[in-house]
């Protein structure tokens, strides 16, 4: 089956600074793909590049973004624009600031319906109420007349989701949709997304820095580190048999039942700020297994149809045991 979206060797620079290197992954129709990584690893930049929403000084400097096999990066900007909100939609990390403060909820949802679904104003208003109901908002008619500042963060994120659904997209990119919300609301929003996905059959890219969320919500995961994909695999593979030392570290730092919170493991060190000077493995500085060979460029080694990792050691697969002993 042809993938819905295939990203190949994507490179992005902000002015002179390179922030994405050879990022590749793909997603099938209806699938849920999780993208995990620490803050600054390039998750949002990847999503924005797919949407064609990178803003200056950000610029795609290489690679391809294939949508049903067609390279979006070669498309005239206006053709890419027409796919936005319709074929692919995105919801963002900051629900508090993502809605326009001077327009009502109705206007902001209707806009999508009128633009992409050719509805009249009246039809759009009715459909907008319908979407609010679908995203679990009570009294949709009354909420339509509200302005964003009159709604809570969780409500605003629901409105954002309603807006994204309104175009009936094939792909929904959810960029840390719950990070800014209360814990209880987080679970509700994720449940909602899963349920909507089951109903509409759309594919979803769930971006998060929480490996746990990927386990609960996705079928496959992509692990990013310092602007690169360091491992990809099915959720099961990533959790039972992580190959890359970074994935292993992430896994170890997940809270487990019965474990004390203050005993939680954290990977020592921080993400490198600049990639330019780094020819070899970007994780080397923090990797407990680093050796001389790690200073050489690393390529993806594949172990199964779904799993691959960017580390020479994984060629013969580092065992969890060896990692734990360090």
């Amino acid at each position: 089956m042809q993938p819905l979206l295939e990203v190949q060797d994507l490179e992005v620079c902000f002015a002179r600074r390179q922030v994405l290197r050879r990022v590749s992954f793909s997603i099938a129709p209806g699938e849920t793909l999780g993208i995990v990584g620490e803050s600054g690893s390039g998750k949002s930049v990847t999503a924005l590049s797919i949407m064609g929403l990178l803003s200056r000084p950000g610029r795609v400097t290489g690679g391809r973004v294939l949508w049903h096999g067609e390279d979006l990066l070669q498309l005239p900007p206006d053709s890419h624009r027409q796919l936005r909100g319709k074929a692919m939609a995105m919801i963002f990390q900051e629900p508090m600031t993502c809605l326009n403060p001077v327009y009502t909820v109705e206007k902001q949802i209707s806009e999508v319906l009128m633009l992409h679904r050719g509805m009249s104003k009246k039809e759009a208003a009715e459909a907008a109420a319908d979407y609010l109901e679908q995203v679990g908002i009570a009294e949709p008619m009354a909420r339509l007349r509200n302005y964003p500042h009159e709604l809570s963060g969780g409500m605003r994120q629901r409105v954002m989701i309603a807006m994204a659904l309104a175009g009936e997209p094939e792909l929904l990119i959810a960029d840390e949709p719950t990070t800014a919300l209360d814990v209880t609301v987080q679970a509700q929003i994720l449940d909602l997304l899963k349920q909507l996905q089951a109903k509409t059959g759309m594919a979803m890219i769930l971006i998060t820095h929480d490996l746990g969320l990927v386990a609960e919500n996705a079928e496959r995961g992509v692990v990013m580190y310092a602007g690169e994909v360091v491992e990809e695999g099915s959720v099961e593979e990533l959790f039972t048999n992580p190959a890359h030392p970074y994935t292993q570290g992430l896994l170890r730092s997940l809270p487990r039942w019965g474990e004390q919170q203050d005993m939680l493991y954290t990977i020592p060190g921080t993400v490198p700020r600049r990639l330019e000077g780094i020819a070899g493995c970007a994780f080397a500085e923090r990797c407990p297994l680093a050796e001389e060979r790690c200073a050489e460029p690393q390529s993806m080694h594949r172990f199964s149809a779904t799993q691959a990792a960017r580390c020479w050691r994984t060629k013969d697969k580092v065992g969890d045991a060896e990692w734990q002993s360090r």
Partner: peptide
């Protein structure tokens, strides 16, 4: 952010 949202709508 809401300008980015507007662009994301197409």
């Amino acid at each position: 952010d809401y300008v980015r949202t507007a662009r994301a709508k197409g």
